[in-house]
Amino acid sequence: MHNTLAIARRELTSYFHSPVAHVVLAVFLVVSGWLFFYFSGLLIVGKASMRGFFALCPLLFMLFVPAITMRLIAEERKSGTFEGLMTLPVAEHEVVLGKFLAALSMMCVGLLCTFVYPVSLALIKAPGSALDMGPIIGGYLSAVLLLSSFIAFGMWASALSKNQIIAFILGLLLCFALWIPDKAILILPASLGAAVQYLSVNYHFENIARGVIDVRDVLYYLTVTTIGLVLTTRTIAATRQ
């Protein structure tokens, strides 16, 4: 844990210094803000909610997460600092966890900023209309879980290529692959479609975002995240060959 936190700290310093990370976060806030106010129903009096915003989170994260994770390992491999890192007395999984925590914190900072939206909803909602907090809390919880799984796979992409652009595209494809099974229901027979759909991050996202927190949905995300982290660890270990 000690090593993991030390690596996470260093990684956060790097994000703090990285213009790319700042731009990505800023664009994220602008886009999410626009989506929020467009879909919030603020314009349609009496229907204030964040459902529209959360419904778009998977697509939003699919773009922004790889932009944040692409540098995690690729940059160090390119610049050579990876050698210093990998010859410190730390285990591979500590490196991976540290970087994961840093990226997750970074994205959570972005998410925290969006708290402005529910607060403003609460302040300016039409008199008499109720703001249901359940879906909002569920929405944020599922957003964090979704971020975890995307970050884990985005980081794997960053371990697979020294080139950050390739890592970004690969990360986007991996996140897309986690999302698309949700649409299987449209083309497959109902029973098979439902099974495939179960594999999709989106399916579980919508469950939790409805405000119904089911252990199975949480477990699903934890499993996907773990798989991503294990794959990253193995890919990193393989660079020693």
Binding site: R10, H17, T81, F82, G84
Partner: peptide, 8 residues
Amino acid sequence: NNPLYEDM
């Protein structure tokens, strides 16, 4: 080549 974190 002494690779170092330039931004630190």
